[in-house]
Amino acid sequence: MLFCQRVFICLIFLGSLAGCALSPQELKPNPIVGNSLSNVGHGQAVSVNVVDQRHSAIIGTRGGLYSSTSSITVQSNDIVPKLQKQAEEALSKMGYRPQSGSSTTLTIIIDSIVYTPSDSNFANDASVKAVLKAQLKTPSKTYNGKYSSTTSQGFTTAPSLEQNNAFVSDVLSNVLTNVFKDSNLSGSM
C-alpha cells in the first residue's frame, strides 16, 4: 500500500512537471503606424527599404522549466514586408511620395526584438523590447536615428500565441511610430 502511494505521488509530480513545459511559438505580428503624424512632405519622393539585421529569428523563450525548447520566433520574411508596407503608408500620411529609385532613401533597420519572460518558472510576466535604426540619405545630407520601445505585461497564465502576437505587434507599432514622429528625420528629407 505504501509503495502504491509513493508511485502515485511520483506520477503526480512528473505530470505536473510535464505541464510546465511550453511549446515554441512562431509569431506573425502586425504592426501599425499611428495616425498622429505631421504632414510635412509636400509630395517629395522617398525610396524606402526595410532590412532585418538580427542574427536570429528567435526573439526569446516562453520561459518555464524547459525554456530551451519554448523559443519564440519572428521570421524575417514575415515581418519585413509588413514593416515596409507600414513605412510606405506612414510616408504617404506625412505627405511624401514613396517611390523606388528616388535620390532620397530611407532605410529602416530591424536591430533587435527581444522577448524576456519573468524569472518565474510559470512565465506569466514578460517584457518585449524592439530597436529600429533609420538611415536617411539625401543628395546633400545623411541622418541616422535609433529608436526603441519596451513594454512589460502580466498574464494570468502563460501567454497564448494570439496574446504574444498582440504584445509584440504593440511594441513594433510603438517603435515604428517613433521613427516617423522624429522631427529630425522628417526635417532632413
Rank of each mutant, 00 (worst) to 15 (best):
K141C: 11
V50F: 03
T104C: 09
L2G: 13
K28A: 12
K146D: 11
G145D: 02
F180I: 09
S169Q: 06
I110K: 03
E26S: 15
V168P: 00
S92W: 03
V40W: 06
L11R: 06
V50G: 01
Q84A: 06
S56E: 07
S118F: 00
S169C: 00
E26W: 05
R97C: 06
S76E: 15
I110C: 01
V114T: 05
L176D: 00
K181Y: 07
I113V: 10
V51N: 07
T107F: 07
P81G: 07
F155G: 06
T156N: 13
A18T: 08
V40R: 11
N30Q: 11
K85G: 00
P159G: 03
Q135G: 04
E162I: 03
G60F: 03
Y147D: 08
N39K: 15
L132I: 06
S140Q: 00
S120E: 15
A166F: 04
T142C: 03
V114R: 00
L185A: 09
S103K: 08
A126H: 11
V179N: 12
K93F: 07
Q153R: 15
S140A: 09
K133T: 04
G15V: 10
C20R: 06
N184I: 03
P139L: 02
K181R: 15
S38G: 06
I32V: 15
M94P: 01
S100L: 13
T156A: 11
T73I: 04
F180N: 05
A87Q: 02
S23N: 14
G43M: 08
G101Y: 10
S47K: 06
T69I: 14
S70G: 11
Q163N: 14
F3W: 10
Q135D: 15
V33R: 01
N124S: 10
